[in-house]
Simulated assay, not measured.
Amino acid sequence: MTYCVGMRLDRGLVFMADTRTNAGVDNVFTFRKMFNWSKPGERVITILTAGNLATTQAVVSLLSERMKAPEDRSPSILEVPTMFQVAKLVGDTLKETVQSQSGNGPVADSTFSATLIVGGQIAGSEPRLFLVYPEGNFIEASDENPFFQIGETKYGRPILLRGYDPAMSFEDAVRILCLSFDSTLKANLSVGMPLDLMTYEKDSFRVGRERRIESDDLAFNALSDAWGQALKTAIHSLPPYAFDDD
């Protein structure tokens, strides 16, 4: 299982992903699920991956290899002029990979399926964020839906819904993301550390702050402990619940 989040802010974009993959309780590995490509001064593109590991690795490898292919091939994600076309190219590559691995079976239900978050900025346009489905189609983040989650989404979603503010700082965004991941880690053992974090500052056209959060990370654990204590305090401060027969 996986948990990844891409979030759009007024200041730019924030990405966070776990690194655990497993094929059973005794077959657990750590693999990176966040990938960055950039042309400093022109564009930054980030992809988060969830789903079948062979599929996601094949997609990332194909995207990287096609940047180095001969001149007679189709443009790569470092060449297309808009983030919309980046998302389309990534979607086409994902669809191609899923179909090649699953044969003639149903694509959407295939064990080889994957879902991706694609975000970034190309000079001349605003930062954009997309959710790409196994079928290759995609949707874009908006004011009404300013963040995307993939993988094990349900445990961390309530915190994001209540805490998100488009005007928040990167520091505040990282705090609610840490709490969202903390809730997911505690509820589902198939999501695990370390966690990868990256921020992208609007119009900087370079990869921003990157950090790998390990299980002994002092800041993450302090947030986790403080959140747990704050919940207990809030519960005790709520009005009492009375049964009708009391």
Rank of each mutant, 00 (worst) to 15 (best):
F148A: 03
L129W: 05
E152P: 01
F147K: 02
G136C: 12
I213N: 12
Q121I: 04
P166E: 08
S113C: 15
S142P: 04
E201H: 03
Y155W: 09
R206Y: 03
P158G: 07
T199H: 05
I159M: 07
N188V: 05
P127R: 06
L160G: 02
A187Y: 08
F181A: 06
R209E: 15
D203K: 08
S180H: 04
I213E: 09
G163A: 07
D196W: 04
K202S: 12
D109P: 00
L160R: 02
I213A: 11
S142I: 02
S125I: 00
A167Q: 08
Y200Q: 07
M193H: 07
A114D: 12
L195Q: 09
R209T: 13
Q149Y: 03
E214F: 15
Y200D: 07
I139H: 05
A123L: 14
R162M: 08
L195N: 09
P194I: 11
G156C: 07
E152H: 04
F147L: 08
L177N: 02
L189V: 10
T153Y: 10
Y200G: 06
R212N: 12
A187G: 06
R212W: 08
Y164W: 09
R162T: 05
L189G: 13
F181P: 01
D109T: 15
A108S: 13
L129Q: 02
E140Y: 00
M198Q: 14
A123F: 12
S169W: 04
C178K: 09
E152C: 10
F130K: 00
P194V: 11
S204V: 00
I117R: 03
S142N: 04
D143T: 04
D216R: 14
P158E: 07
Q121K: 02
G124D: 08
S180D: 03
L195W: 10
G163K: 00
T111S: 14
D143P: 00
D196I: 06
E140C: 01
K186E: 12
M193G: 06
F112N: 15
E135Q: 14
L129T: 01
Y164F: 14
M168F: 02
S113Y: 11
I159N: 02
I117F: 03
S169C: 05
K186Q: 11
I139W: 05
E144M: 06
C178I: 00
T199K: 05
E214L: 15
R206G: 10
G156K: 06
D172H: 08
G208I: 07
V118Y: 10
I117P: 05
L129V: 02
M198R: 10
R209A: 13
E152L: 10
I213L: 14
T153M: 12
S125G: 14
L179Q: 11
F147C: 04
G119F: 00
G120V: 01
L116I: 11
P166N: 06
R206Q: 14
E126Y: 05
K186I: 07
T111D: 13
R206L: 12
R162W: 04
S190H: 12
T111W: 09
Q121P: 03
L129R: 03
V118E: 10
A141D: 02
L116G: 04
